[in-house]
Amino acid sequence: MKLIYNRHRNSKSDEELLALFIEEGRVGALGELYERHIHLVFGLCLKYMKNTHQAKDAVISIYEKVQTEIDRHTIRNFKSWLYVVSKNHCLMELRKAKPGQVVSLTEAEKSDSFMEYDAEMHPIDGEQTEEMEKALQECIEHLKTEQQKSIRLFYFSNKCYREIAGLMQTDEKKVKSYIQNAKRNLKICLDKKK
């Protein structure tokens, strides 16, 4: 499988390509959309799998999953949604490969609602300027301590709820609540800064 891509072969935005696929069934539009972000998917898979061949296989599997799942979701930001789908796929594959180890997703993380919610509210994904990155870091600094720790561990250290709960010596439901509240507060803060 070739993982080199031609960046933005045409000038259509992600949203336009997504609409072409969903509304008109143009498979080529979805292929191009996926190709634009394939380097991110491969990088994420490589990070989790730590094996080039497994990461390449995962990239193909994720594309197949995207084809079957895409019209079941309301997607506002394809890149964010793809990130969550890719991360969930990798974690599930690791879980299958190492059944006794803690590489688990909570039921909330496996559910469709988590994927949709996370794709819509992900505060750190998408194209970011230096100014946006600075604004995000400032907003994180204003969060309550538990929210700040949870959001940093979840997004910047790629920890799952269970791992964060262990590190913070609390339960997973509280961690989920901290993260959801933090995302809501970050969105409000970032909207004010715009």
Rank of each mutant, 00 (worst) to 15 (best):
T52C: 06
E32G: 08
E109D: 03
K65H: 05
M49V: 00
Y161T: 01
M121G: 10
K96L: 11
K192F: 05
R36F: 07
T106F: 00
V27S: 12
T52R: 08
A29L: 01
L94Q: 04
N51V: 06
V85H: 00
A19K: 14
E15W: 04
E130T: 08
V66C: 00
E127F: 15
R9I: 12
H73L: 09
K79N: 06
K50P: 01
I60G: 02
Q67Y: 11
Y48R: 02
I164V: 01
Y117C: 06
L30C: 10
Y34K: 00
K187W: 03
K12H: 13
K65C: 06
K187D: 15
E163F: 00
V175H: 00
A165S: 13
S86E: 06
M132R: 15
Y117A: 11
Q147F: 02
F21P: 03
H142G: 11
D57R: 01
K192T: 15
A165R: 03
N88T: 12
K192G: 08
E64I: 01
M1A: 13
L190R: 01
G100Y: 07
V66A: 01
D71R: 14
S177F: 03
V102S: 14
L186P: 03
E69S: 11
L17K: 13
L94T: 02
S104A: 10
K174V: 15
G31L: 06
R95G: 12
Y117M: 11
K98V: 13
L18D: 08
S177V: 12
S11A: 13
N51H: 07
D118C: 14
I151E: 03
T52Q: 10
D71A: 11
S111F: 07
Q101D: 15
I60K: 09
F154A: 05
N88G: 08
H53Y: 13
Y117Q: 12
E107W: 10
N51Q: 10
C45A: 13
E64F: 03
S61K: 02
I70P: 04
L94E: 01
I164P: 02
K50G: 07
A108I: 12
S86A: 14
M92R: 04
Q67H: 03
K144F: 12
V27R: 01
K79L: 03
P99W: 00
K176R: 09
E116D: 11
E35I: 02
E133C: 14
L186G: 06
Y161E: 10
Y155D: 10
L186I: 08
E163P: 00
S80G: 05
K173G: 11
N88E: 04
T52K: 06
M168C: 12
Y83R: 11
Q180W: 06
V84Y: 07
G28I: 06
D112Q: 11
K144E: 15
V102E: 13
K110Q: 12
K56G: 07
I4F: 10
R72N: 13
K193S: 14
K79A: 11
F42N: 05
T170E: 00
N51G: 03
I188Q: 03
F154I: 07
I75D: 07
M132L: 11
K98R: 10
